[in-house]
């Protein structure tokens, strides 16, 4: 009797064990490793056990490191600009294309193609297009008699260039999510609004956008998290330059580890980024949880009514 009940009690844990082991090996161990590494002065040529323990020095030094702070600023600026643009364009396009016209299905498929391309390829593609002499932009400008633009050799223009590439690749993500949200809106509520005298614009403002908001907030947070981690496109296009103008944090981390060979410092940088991402993810979970609780409360109230 006792042994049977003990087995029963243990059964769920036995089923969970493989997943837990996998999680520990694949996630917790590397993260722990990285946290430990961030307290070391560690070169790639050394075995980790031989590296000198320096406590919080890496973190403190970074705090005072101009290049790191600038890189942090570039990352914030980059994320803010691309996500804002992607939200406006993506939602706008979805609002425009949310109708059953001929050929719309094909158009929607074409719209989401950029998302399917590997980031490194996107980077290469845009680098060719931004080429100072043979790239399509400058070539066209020249044919039309305009001055060429120093796309990747001027600090401001290169920041613009990487933003255009990211917006091109990720606006479709906002677009599909918005379109899905729009198409699941209660049609009769929109018809009721029409009968109530709402113009198309008033329907968007008073009905569609408020009802899409839960999806939009999650989409925004997902995009923000992604924008903070972007690496390959910029690595290939500008490698952070010219100067530090496009050196976002993940690129700085990559270069610190690969070029400057300071693994401990790179690990400390990663942890700063990790903290930022944890904050964003937590906001998203809290928001979802809050939405669930609200829905639950409303259901309960309806039961009572």
């Amino acid at each position: 009797m006792t042994s049977v009940s003990r087995i029963n009690r243990l059964t769920p844990y036995m089923f969970l064990a493989p997943a837990v082991v996998l999680l520990v090996v694949a996630l917790l161990y590397p993260i722990g490793y990285m946290i430990y590494a961030s307290f070391l002065d560690w070169r790639p040529s050394q075995y980790i056990g031989e590296a000198e323990f320096v406590g919080l020095r890496n973190y403190i030094n970074l705090w005072n490191d101009e290049a790191f702070r600038e890189s942090f600023g570039v990352t914030l600026k980059f994320a803010a600009v691309v996500v804002t643009l992607e939200m406006f364009i993506g939602v706008g396009l979805a609002l425009l294309l949310d109708r059953n016209l001929r050929g719309m299905a094909a158009l929607r498929t074409i719209f989401i193609l950029p998302m399917m391309i590997a980031p490194i390829v996107v980077g290469l593609m845009w680098r060719y297009m931004y080429h100072p002499t043979v790239g399509i932009f400058n070539r066209t400008l020249k044919d039309w008699g305009f001055e060429p633009i120093p796309w990747l050799s001027d600090g401001t223009w290169s920041f613009v260039a990487v933003i255009i590439a990211d917006v091109w690749q990720w606006t479709p993500f906002i677009f599909i999510l918005s379109l899905a949200a729009l198409q699941s809106l209660p049609q009769s509520a929109l018809e009721a609004a029409e009968i109530d005298g709402a113009t198309d614009w008033q329907k968007v403002w008073h009905i569609k956008l408020p009802l899409m908001m839960p999806v939009l907030i999650v989409a925004l947070l997902l995009r923000l998290i992604d924008a903070f981690k972007v690496l390959e496109v910029i690595l290939v296009m500008t490698n952070g330059g010219p100067g530090l103008s496009t050196e976002i944090l993940s690129l700085r981390i990559y270069r610190t580890a690969q070029e400057f060979q300071e693994l401990g410092v790179a690990a400390a940088m990663s942890n700063y980024l990790l903290i930022l991402l944890i904050i964003l993810t937590t906001i998203m979970f809290l928001y979802n949880k809050g939405a669930e609780n609200r829905a639950e409360r409303l259901r309960a109230a309806a039961q009572e009514a």
């Binding site: 209660p186 509520a189 018809e191 009721a192 609004a193 029409e194 005298g197």
Partner: peptide, 20 residues
């Protein structure tokens, strides 16, 4: 004419209330 210029009100089968 669009609905709003027809001077009518409508009650829908699924009520069509504005959920938000």
């Amino acid at each position: 004419l669009p609905p709003k210029q027809r001077d009518l009100a409508m009650v829908f089968q699924d009520y069509a209330l504005y959920p938000h």
